[in-house]
Design a protein around this nucleic acid. Structure first.
Lengths: 201, 201
DNA sequence: CGCTTCACATACGAAGCGTATGCGAACCAG
DNA sequence: CTGGTTCGCATACGCTTCGTATGTGAAGCG
């Protein structure tokens, strides 16, 4: 071994470069918003130039899309953990939704995925495969219907509605003066709404 | 009369100029999005220059805010008509929500208010007084609670959730291949969710 | 060992935004 | 009626930023 392979392989350097650009992009987009983030600045912060960025991501929107895909998969992983810990299918659905409300209050998710993402890339319905949270909610609802716990609504439609409600709630909470108190009221209302999906209750 | 007053008064010209700029802004923002709309182009289309725009609205965001306020008040007026035509408080609430789902499918409202607005101006919670639709929903819910028809949830919180759900539904519908069919499924799910707000049912 | 490939840098042109300045017509004092 | 001020709007300028076109040097391959 000794000195052998001190120089990383080509492929390794590439993924490292991509990772550095995406990390810088996440920071810049989260801090200044998509429009306010300068590609010269964020590439310099990553120790590179715009040349690298255009080579790997095509254009500014490409970097945003990549960053969003990354954040989305992280969200999906976090939701999976929440769901796995729940005792019943109904609990899983509720816990997941509440977790999503809380996650969308995080500045990075809020700014990049919820505000700039739809404006720049078009609304999320088009982001094929990049909507882990909605997909996850749809799966939970489908499971509820299969188990006879929920009304036989369209799972995808219901998932969109539930996610939209949660999203709107978190935007509201995040900009409130007393997030804790507002959050409690929002979750209470959410539980009431969600109960509308239950079978006979 | 004859030729008298062929020249309008100063104030009249000002409101006309503002109106022309806002109309051109609405068209440009709706057609190309906020970022894609050039101020040189849209002012030229109005027969003016950027000078007039900066004089009246301060900057590009100022024009967007004015356009959004105008659209918002139009929405509020349309919702008032819907509510007035309903027989019961519950019908008013449902009709209003469904109308909002359908309105947010209109390209102008979708692009300007729902996609670009939050990204440029910050999320809507901060647009004091410029959230007629949420306010309207909150009033409807308050009325339901007063009449004992709805659970005693926080009206503002519930209104946000309901509006968010509706908004998400319409974004989804608008980008679907078969809007009619998807719309029906979305509204069915919405009715199920909304039933969660009813008192004992 | 020379040629190709490819990751990335450099250089250039084109918009677009905001501001500073200019102009002309409407109000106002005397 | 006249000289000055206000103000609605246009013109002119600089700066930033994006996208592309081109250059370069190192790794791979015959």
């Amino acid at each position: 071994m000794s000195i052998a392979k001190t120089s990383q392989r080509r492929a390794d350097m590439i993924v490292e470069t991509r990772a550095k650009l995406m990390a810088a992009g996440r920071r810049a987009f989260a801090a200044k918003g998509y429009a306010g983030a300068s590609m010269d600045d964020l590439t310099a912060e990553a120790g590179l130039t715009r040349g690298a960025l255009y080579h790997h991501f095509g254009d500014k929107k490409g970097l945003l899309a990549a960053v969003i895909a990354e954040i989305d998969s992280e969200i999906a992983a976090r939701l999976r953990v929440i769901i796995a810990q729940a005792d019943t299918a109904w609990d899983a659905f509720i816990d997941e939704s509440v977790a999503w409300i809380e996650m969308s209050m995080e500045p990075e998710i809020r700014r990049i995925m919820l505000l700039d993402g739809p404006a720049v890339l078009g609304d999320p319905s088009g982001w094929v495969g990049q909507t882990a949270c909605v997909d996850s909610t749809a799966r939970s609802i489908r499971r509820l219907i299969d188990e006879g716990l929920a009304k036989p609504v369209d799972p995808d439609a219901a998932a969109r509605l539930v996610n939209g409600a949660a999203l709107s709630a978190s935007l509201w909470i995040a900009s409130a003066e007393d997030p804790r108190a507002v959050s409690a009221r929002a979750i209470e209302s959410f539980l009431a709404l969600a109960s509308g999906l239950r079978k006979h209750a």
